[in-house]
């Protein structure tokens, strides 16, 4: 009976299963938990944050509520030099971070996997063209590229995502391609072809499920990259002032001399949040590596 149950489980379950989440790795589980906490925070940001993160706040005497220390006038983590609530910004920052991280990861994994799949499976001219494109993408220095895009396009957190989608698919594509090459040389692909399966069917049935964990691995690395890149861009002054991100908070803090003011409550929390989310991605990645490449050992 159990076999029957498995066979009947729907597509989502199958997909989930094929992700092969590294649940037996302690660090990976820790990473997943961090993700969970941040996702929940992002979803309920409106309920958690006491203020709008960009709202200019005043004290009871109608003075600008600037540079309040934590706890003062009820501001949990104090306020910025321009009278915005630090805690609310931190909470809403979760939203931009995950938005950027997840979309960038999705784009990178999706484009990279597709290119790698097509390139590896069909070979020949398609492969040659796609791999030359990858070479070109490898020749583009990423951070300078983002800076130029962010400076010239309207400031938006999506610039980082766009740049990543345009450039960073290259790593994923190469790895997936070589994985596909290995898979293709295995007997069952040939067997399927002889049995008259179409290319689409072979890709979907036999190849795609096997590269999914690898795409997911590269995706989770991309989450960290995206968040770090967005932070760097914000620090250099090319960020999007409309959407509060942790990088933006850090830039604001440094530009307002949070260091000189010893406003640790202002520039430490966003930094910690970035570190937590990004390293959560790394932890999960490592968990994956241990599953995918067990020879690396623990």
């Amino acid at each position: 009976m159990p076999e029957l149950a498995i066979a009947r489980s729907g597509l989502p379950t199958r997909l989930f299963r094929s992700l092969r989440l590294p649940l037996n790795d302690r660090f990976a589980v820790f990473g997943l938990l961090i993700y969970l906490v941040f996702v929940v925070t992002a979803l309920f940001a409106d309920q958690i944050a006491p203020y709008d993160p960009t709202e200019i706040l005043y004290t009871e005497d109608y003075d600008l509520a600037a540079d309040m220390r934590p706890g003062q006038e009820g501001f949990i983590l104090g306020t910025t030099s321009l009278g915005r609530d630090v805690f609310s910004q931190l909470v809403y920052g979760t939203r931009s971070a995950l938005l950027i991280g997840v979309t960038a990861a999705f784009m990178v994994a999706l484009i990279g996997s597709l290119v790698g799949l097509v390139s590896g499976y069909f070979g020949g001219w398609t492969d040659a063209v796609l791999m030359r494109l990858a070479d070109i993408a490898f020749g583009i220095p990423f951070l300078p590229f983002v800076i130029v895009l962010a400076a010239f396009l309207e400031p938006s957190i999506w610039n980082v995502v766009l740049a990543m989608a345009l450039v960073l698919w290259r790593d994923t594509a190469r790895v997936i391609r070589s994985q596909v090459l290995t898979l293709r040389s295995r007997g069952y692909v040939d067997a399927a072809r002889v049995a008259g399966s179409s290319d689409a069917k072979i890709i979907l049935r036999h190849i795609a499920p096997n590269i999914l964990p690898l795409s997911f691995l590269y995706g989770s690395i991309a989450i960290g990259w995206a968040i770090l890149t967005e932070a760097s861009i914000s620090f250099l002054g090319f960020g999007d002032p409309e959407s509060i991100s942790w990088g933006y908070m850090l830039q604001d803090a440094f530009a307002s001399q949070a260091l000189a003011k010893q406003a640790y409550y202002w520039f430490v929390p966003p930094g910690l949040c970035i570190i937590l989310v990004v390293s959560a991605g790394f932890f999960i990645t490592r968990g994956y590596e241990n599953i995918l490449f067990p020879k690396l050992g623990r």
Binding site: A231, L250, F254, L259, F267, I274, S279
Partner: peptide
Amino acid sequence: AIPIVLTTRAMPEFWLGMVLLA
């Protein structure tokens, strides 16, 4: 050591720089 190493790679460089500077 391993988690620490992973964490150092998760720090924004400018943040680390500012903290070291301070």
